[in-house]
């Protein structure tokens, strides 16, 4: 069953386990890739929140990609980036209003959350359940924070 990612901001403690999980779930040439998720302080008392791609209905990343390297995976709802097609123009990195298309400078690749193909690894590792999964159902395929 394909799953999508649900974020519950106020449960996040900023432990950064998701960051580690994501990096290890996306290795490039045997080395961990750049994490696609970032726990950040919200500025409200001790509250943190994971910041990750919202898989928008009207995605600025895909709209800005003039070579169509970013497309929707209809099964999972994720906007997926094809690194073989990407010409590294950085348009999507500049255009995403949530900063969730990223330049992995170590490997010189542009990356974003792909929902791990329908099994979000970060959610399995989040100790406080700020990140959880929910099965993709036809009525629930749209992006939710």
């Amino acid at each position: 069953m394909k799953q999508r990612l649900i974020v519950t901001p106020d449960l996040c403690t900023g432990c950064r386990t998701c960051e580690l999980a994501c990096a290890f779930a996306h290795p490039i040439k045997g080395k961990p890739g750049r994490s696609r998720i970032y726990p950040l302080p919200t500025g409200k008392s001790e509250m943190w929140t994971p910041v990750v791609c919202l898989q928008c209905d009207d995605p600025a990343c895909a709209k800005s990609c003039l070579v169509d390297a970013i497309t929707r995976n209809e099964e999972t709802g994720a906007m997926e980036l094809d690194n073989d097609k990407c010409v590294k123009c950085m348009a999507c990195v500049a255009a995403c209003p949530f900063g969730c298309s990223l330049h992995d400078t170590l490997h010189d690749l542009v990356v974003k959350c792909d929902l791990c193909g329908g099994d979000p690894v970060c959610a399995h590792f989040c100790p406080t359940k700020a990140l959880t999964c929910r099965p993709v159902t036809p009525t629930r395929r749209k992006a939710v924070v």
């Binding site: 901001p9 919200t42 500025g43 900063g99």
Partner: peptide, 13 residues
Amino acid sequence: HRKELSVKMGSIV
């Protein structure tokens, strides 16, 4: 942009 989103999410919560 990511920082801005985290602050917005904090305000909403």
